[in-house]
Simulated scan of single mutants.
Amino acid sequence: MGDRSVHKRVRMSVAAAGLVAALALTGCGSDGDDSASDKASATPAGSGAETGSASIEGAWSGKTSDGKSIDLAVTGTKVVLLADGHACTGEVADHGKLMLSLKCADGNTDRTMGTIESSTDKSLVISWDAGAKDTLSKSAAGALPPGLPSGLPTP
């Protein structure tokens, strides 16, 4: 059983490294050019608050209902999700409400279609079509989500 645990940690380390690489390659922060994010921003009718993709950009982290780590990175319309041992990528789109459409590398469908229920500059609530509901907290600018394995190679 010890070997399975090591293999799972290695897979999670590889997935975490992929998240770090995705964040680094896509430039998680803003460089002052807000034209792309302005085009992606929209206010759903009757919401009274900005919930466009620009407002959910960045790195988010939290725990699933069963206490496992969940990490989300949003850059423009691109999304990377690490949850419960699954690595998923996809896009965010505005359909009156912001929707996440993801595909997991291992075929898992627990968190492939989600709706942003609420977002502030510090928290994000996502309801997934498969039944889960996650509340995530914004990671500090330039900081990696907590709980990632240490000793990862740096780009």
Rank of each mutant, 00 (worst) to 15 (best):
G29H: 13
G48K: 14
G48E: 14
G46L: 15
L82A: 09
A132D: 15
C104T: 14
G32Y: 08
I56A: 04
D71K: 04
G52S: 09
S13W: 05
K39P: 01
T77L: 06
G48H: 14
A87E: 06
V20M: 13
A15R: 04
A143Y: 05
G142H: 08
A73K: 00
R4H: 10
E50V: 07
L25K: 12
D134A: 01
D34E: 12
I70S: 04
D129T: 13
A87I: 05
G107I: 03
K122M: 10
D38M: 11
H95I: 03
D84C: 05
D66S: 11
C104D: 14
S30A: 03
K103A: 13
G58W: 03
D121R: 10
D31T: 01
K97A: 11
N108P: 01
I116G: 01
T109W: 03
G46H: 15
D94L: 09
T89G: 11
G32C: 06
H7R: 12
V92M: 03
S55L: 08
P44F: 10
R9P: 01
N108K: 10
G131Y: 08
A36V: 10
A45V: 14
C28F: 00
K39R: 14
I56K: 02
A105F: 13
L19W: 04
S139H: 01
S61F: 03
N108S: 15
V125W: 00
I116C: 04
S127H: 11
N108I: 05
L82K: 02
I56M: 07
A87Y: 11
H95N: 13
R11I: 06
G67L: 04
T115P: 00
D31K: 01
L98D: 02
C104M: 13
V10M: 11
D34C: 05
S118D: 15
A87K: 03
G27A: 03
D38I: 09
V20I: 14
S127N: 14
E50G: 12
V6N: 13
D106R: 07
K68Q: 11
V80H: 05
T112E: 11
L136R: 03
A140D: 15
G62T: 04
G96K: 05
K97W: 09
G85A: 13
L72Q: 01
H7I: 04
A132T: 10
K8A: 15
A45G: 12
V14D: 10
L19H: 06
A42T: 13
V125Y: 00
C28P: 00
A16D: 05
D38T: 12
L124R: 02
A140R: 11
G131A: 07
K78C: 00
I126M: 07
A24D: 14
I70F: 02
T135K: 14
L81Q: 07
T120K: 09
E117Q: 11
L124M: 06
D84F: 06
D129C: 05
V6P: 00
R9K: 15
G85K: 09
G107C: 04
D31F: 00
G142F: 08
S41D: 15
G107A: 06
S61K: 01
T89Q: 09
S55P: 03
D110Y: 10
E117A: 08
G107L: 04
